[in-house]
């Protein structure tokens, strides 16, 4: 049936964005057991960097008014560079907002607030630099790809399909890397037990930095892609995904990479399944679903149950 297929397509395409966002949270969570609230701001940064990379000029309201790079890079190159820039920025966030607390073995709650502070600073600096107006990446950034694909009557914008592909690839690469490679296993060892990992000769600091760099890279890539899909809605662009991303993260299971994808798709589908006349209740449905799952399965869909030690 047409509509059923369309709902599936809608749910998956919206869910992919949530999943990409939650994957960034997951990477840091799996190593440190804390949430990096600056992630949304990095997502925004990635979108703005991509915009600059493809040769976009700053609007008239920012401190950088009228400024543009002297060159216009192809979209994929600009996107990768934006990802790299966000990786660096996230390393900075780690150094300022996380490392001093980690040294002291502070409570996880503190990281929430320091990273929130870092996010507030970053978002407001972006507003000062770029102004509050929206920006859009050029519609022809994807070259000859048709803007809309039709699948047995269900319509999807090709950029959404691209987002879904990127999401699947990132998840596959991450899973394989975590399970198979030396670095990935070291990362997992640190997340299991930092002390033992150190005894095994693993540099846990390096592993934490690696997770932040990867998470930042992901934030940058997804920010640029989502910016291409729906335009950059101002400096608060990334923050609005923060709440859904958090929900998806917990729904899928904290620290679980496939869980983030599954969670994203579940929330996306739940939202898409809300009939048009009730579209105002969409967000409540997503969170009611999350709430129900939490009560039935507190560790999330793919998370491991917590161990209570006696």
């Amino acid at each position: 049936m047409d509509t059923l297929l369309q709902i599936l397509v809608n749910g998956i395409s919206v869910g992919a964005v949530y999943a990409l966002f939650a994957l960034g949270y997951t990477l840091v969570f799996s190593v440190l057991g804390v949430i990096n609230f600056a992630h949304g701001a990095l997502f925004t940064l990635g979108a703005y960097l991509t915009y600059l990379g493809v040769g976009g000029a700053v609007g008239s309201n920012g401190a950088l008014a009228g400024w543009a790079l002297p060159l216009a890079l192809p979209f994929p190159v600009a996107l990768l560079l934006a990802g790299a820039g966000c990786a660096l920025a996230n390393l900075l966030v780690e150094a300022i907002a996380f490392r001093p607390l980690r040294r002291r073995g502070a409570e996880p709650l503190l990281y929430l607030i320091t990273s929130l502070g870092a996010g507030v600073v970053l978002v407001n600096l972006l507003q000062i630099a770029f102004g509050a107006e929206g920006y859009a990446l050029p519609a022809d950034a994807l070259g000859d790809l048709p803007p809309v694909l039709s699948l047995a009557g269900a319509r999807i914008r090709s950029v959404q399909l691209l987002l879904l592909l990127v999401c699947a690839v990132v998840m596959a690469v991450l899973t394989v890397w975590l399970e198979r490679s030396r670095g990935g296993r070291a990362l997992q060892a640190v997340s299991e037990d930092a002390v033992t990992a150190r005894l095994l000769g693993i540099d846990s600091d390096a592993m934490v930095r690696l997770s932040f760099a990867l998470s930042g890279l992901l934030a940058g890539l997804s920010g640029g892609l989502v910016g291409l899909s729906v335009s950059i809605a101002g400096p608060y662009f990334g923050i609005v995904y923060g709440l859904k991303g958090l929900g998806v993260l917990v729904l899928g299971g904290l620290g679980s990479v496939p869980g983030a994808l599954l969670g994203g798709l579940v929330v996306g589908l739940a939202e898409a399944a809300v009939p048009g006349d009730l579209s105002g209740l969409k967000d409540a449905v997503a969170f009611a679903f999350l709430f129900a799952i939490l009560l039935l399965r507190p560790q999330g869909l793919l998370g491991r149950p917590p161990i209570s030690k006696v």
Binding site: S13, S231, A233, E271
Partner: peptide, 22 residues
């Protein structure tokens, strides 16, 4: 024929638009 609601901060309208186009 249809009234679609969204949030002020929403950016993706795939669901609403595909519900209305048919």
């Amino acid at each position: 024929v249809s009234v679609q609601r969204h949030q002020f901060s929403d950016t993706d309208f795939q669901t609403q638009v595909t519900a209305v186009l048919p």
